[in-house]
Design a protein around this nucleic acid. Structure first.
Lengths: 341, 341
DNA sequence: GACCCTAGCTAAACCGGTTTATCTCCGGCT
DNA sequence: AGCCGGAGATAAACCGGTTTAGCTAGGGTC
């Protein structure tokens, strides 16, 4: 089967290629009679302009790109990105080029390649680092980009972000209102910008708060939780940087015989089916809507709009069974017997 | 910033465009001296051929496509597809064009469009229907395609599949070996081919087995489970078509006071973090490897290999806490009091 | 009637590659 | 000397669009 080209349409309608192009793109230069004839011929022949050819004459590639840096097998557990992608798609008429790579270097090389190959009109940047080389790269290449999730103001780039600082503060305030004083945090990758934000928010609202580093995997969540519960003065509440670590933490608590929420309260960042089934209190945000917003921003930037910062709505704390009032303080007992064997 | 084109390389190396093309593609027609000079110039200038332009001269689009038909918001819960995608990527050097649409018609239109626009070299077909129009479409268009997950032999198309029939049979045999006799099944969408396969396997190995239809959502899993447990002679074991429904079912059982596994055994199809945390016995397959295999098959077909059927390894039953020996049969009590209020 | 303007269209160049036809030069053979 | 062949290179066509320059016919103005 041979797909019809503009030349076929031109021949069938008895006009020139140029006239067909003008007619199809709704531009002036052809009479209404000719235009309607061309349109009719095109539709009966099932004509579709080739994006490829169109992209050549410096028009758009009609696609945007997204690169994820992950160990590929771990990807399936992170519902977050899938939600995000689905949301993006809902606001884009063009295609999404998706690639999973395993290193930051590969990611940068890929962006460069896509740009050089004229393959995308713009890209999303996720997992922003504290000082991210990609920001400068985009400016240098002149490739439209939207930073997703990094808190505002990245060079000349547009960004869509949620206020992690305020969110963390609100979680801590909630826990404090329940009487918790020894609050700990299981953080995500330290190289990520939002981890730093949350860290600083946590540090400024919790005195002597313990922070243990994790990497979003169940293993790291379990390890961190074991470490925290084994301390001389274990925390009465733990805030996790994602859902997977939180659920793993809940299991460790159960296996150690620490009752949730009467002895220990748990909060997960990012809600998911996992939290729903684990009855975990979680900081929920509408990731789908977030993706949609990011897509709108990118489309705007590609369209030539000047880059803006869009702040997402503050995540909402969904209280479930994993948080409760702090256990009564045993006066005079600075070092209660750790419950951990 | 302006990216260098083949013309720039030609000028810098003092040769013609054609010579550069030959040199870069390792084809004969240029001397070794010229070739090395061209290569050097190209690398110092950071040259990258434009896929766009290349695709125009009937070469490859250097991308493959995947369309998912889902209500977009539900997508995030299905780790399966993300795993699959990650696996595909691991075996492809080209890019993946991903789009989520909300109807079968849109999917077909999209495949047609991608083909017409010369945007992809081939596509993956997932969620095969019992009599799927896409199979014929691909043949008609001459678009290389690989059927993912549908059990073998689809027209002239290559396919990568797991033997759902054998898998279902093995699950039932396992339950029977535990003494279960009243086994029920919560099925997935009836329009999907693999649902039909599992149905027929289930029907032929379980006498009077009850099948309730579901749609992979937690709600449908819960509803189906409530229905089954409310029957006069409720089943002692239930097999679910996916993890989300199984976990929802486990919760319903818990809320009704039905003990798992002493009174009721549960098995989920497709393992995930959800099953791991819910301690659900699950039929586990290596989705990542499955995706990788599919990608290899597609690459081969695009390369001109004649389409083949690749059978995936049989899924493995991972026994966790949700399955156990059947409760003792109360002799003479045909209709035990339902435990459901 | 001479002039200009514009609508409507065509021809041709262009985008950045690949591919084919052609051209030149050089060496070997009879 | 004359002929042939092949290597090495180039010019030009082509892919399927967009865009610009140019051409023509018709109508209005003075």
């Amino acid at each position: 089967m041979k797909r019809p080209t503009i030349k076929d349409i031109a021949a069938a309608a008895g006009v020139s290629k140029g006239a067909v192009s003008l007619a199809l793109n709704g531009r002036s230069g052809v009479s209404e009679r000719t235009r309607s004839r061309v349109l009719e011929v095109a539709s009966t022949l099932g004509y579709r302009p080739s994006v490829t050819a169109r992209a050549l004459s410096s028009a758009s590639a009609d696609a945007v790109g997204l690169v994820l840096v992950r160990p590929p097998r771990a990807l399936g557990d992170e519902a977050f990105f899938f939600q995000l992608i689905a949301g993006m798609q809902s606001e884009m008429s063009c295609a999404l080029l998706l690639q999973v790579v395993d290193s930051r270097e590969a990611e940068i090389a890929l962006y460069q390649r896509w740009w050089a190959e004229h393959r995308v009109d713009g890209v999303f940047l996720v997992d922003l680092l504290v000082s991210d080389p990609r920001v400068e790269l985009m400016s240098a290449l002149g490739l439209p980009a939207v930073v997703v999730g990094g808190a505002g103001h990245h060079g000349e780039l547009a960004s869509v972000w949620a206020d992690d600082y305020a969110a963390m503060t609100s979680v801590v305030e909630y826990l404090k209102s329940l009487g918790h004083q020894r609050i700990a945090r299981v953080a995500g990758l330290a190289s990520l910008l939002h981890t730093v934000r949350r860290d600083s928010a946590f540090a400024s609202s919790v005195v002597d708060g313990v922070v243990v580093a994790g990497d979003y995997t169940a293993e790291s969540g379990a390890r961190a939780t074991r470490e925290l519960l084994g301390m001389a003065a274990p925390p009465t509440a733990i805030v996790y940087d994602n859902d997977v670590m939180a659920v793993a933490g809940a299991e460790v608590a159960a296996s150690l015989g620490v009752a949730v929420p009467s002895e220990l309260s748990l909060v997960a960042w990012d809600d998911s089916v996992l939290c729903q089934h684990g009855r975990l209190t979680a900081l929920s945000r509408d990731t789908f809507a977030f993706g949609a917003r990011a897509a709108r921003a990118l489309v705007a930037v590609i369209g030539g709009a000047s880059p803006t910062d869009v702040e997402d709505v503050l995540p909402e704390l969904v209280v479930r069974g994993s948080t409760g009032t702090a256990p009564a303080v045993q006066v005079g007992c600075e070092h209660p017997t750790p419950r951990v064997r």
